[in-house]
Computed example of a mutant assay.
Amino acid sequence: MSDVRLTTAGGVFSQRIREQWNEQLGRRIDILAAGCGRGAPLELDQIDARVTGVDEDRPFLRAATVARPDLDSWSLGDMRSVPLMPRSYDVVCVEFLLERIPHAELVLDRMVNGLRPGGLLLIRMRDRKSAYGFLDRKVPFRKPLRRWLAPEDAAGPLPSIYEPVTSREGVHSYCMMRGLMIAEDHSLISGPARLGPHGGLVAGVCRTVSRLSGGRLAPDHDEIALVVRKPQHHFARLI
């Protein structure tokens, strides 16, 4: 595990996607962008890739999805039923989706099922076990607070559900049970309120919450980013 202090996961993910394409010896790679209404466009310069987006059907997410320049096609709806063909993708990139949807583990199962053997699962999510994640799901009046704390162009507010899988322990346990291999695990600071005009105040509140929790809630990050690989061999417990 590495401790990344800034929002660098996008660069890490882009590099891993490029490496995955190189391994295909020039074959086009198929990428699923899950959470396409909230995630950033992928950096795919000089990569032969087809990108499909999926997300919930909410007005803000639909507008953001339509505006993304990297998507070749997209589908919005209930994440338990949006079209996801088995073993159709070389890379599944999940950005800030799991913490805001119900049945997150079921949805994650569908995405892993959509990966080809040897494919990459790239996950970015708010950490349920961080002080920031605790505040995000517990603080009332999130909408007016967000207007004051977050940058003007920040998305949301979106639901804050944070099921058990949306923590470092939760996703590690999930990967172990599914036979998935975690290659990288990063801690980051990327929460809109942490990067907004009152980021120092928010950081202070997170430290206070961490102390009150006896250190159970981490104050030094709000996001976890993981690079996960689906094994090639057929003896692995694959979905």
Rank of each mutant, 00 (worst) to 15 (best):
L32Q: 07
V228C: 07
A9T: 13
L115H: 03
A203D: 15
R68E: 10
R80Q: 14
V4T: 14
S2K: 12
V51T: 07
P83M: 08
G26D: 07
A67Y: 05
A40L: 13
Y162P: 00
P102N: 03
Q24M: 10
A236Q: 12
C206V: 03
F13K: 02
H172I: 08
A183V: 13
D48H: 12
K143F: 06
T8H: 13
S173V: 09
G133D: 08
L226M: 15
I189P: 00
D45K: 13
L44N: 12
P231D: 11
P140V: 09
V51F: 02
M176Y: 11
L238A: 13
L44K: 11
P140D: 05
R100M: 06
P157L: 00
D153C: 06
G191L: 04
R16H: 11
F235R: 12
V202P: 02
D72Y: 07
S81Y: 01
V54C: 12
A155H: 10
G214I: 02
A9R: 07
P159S: 08
E56P: 00
A64D: 10
S130N: 10
D222R: 00
S81L: 04
V202C: 04
P59S: 09
L238N: 06
P164V: 08
D90M: 01
D3H: 15
R146D: 11
V91Q: 03
H221I: 07
I17F: 05
A67N: 11
V82C: 03
Y174N: 11
G215L: 01
T7R: 09
R27E: 09
I182D: 02
R178A: 15
Q232F: 10
V112N: 04
L76M: 04
P86C: 05
L149K: 01
G53S: 09
P144Q: 06
G35Q: 07
H221A: 05
T166S: 14
H221K: 05
R194C: 09
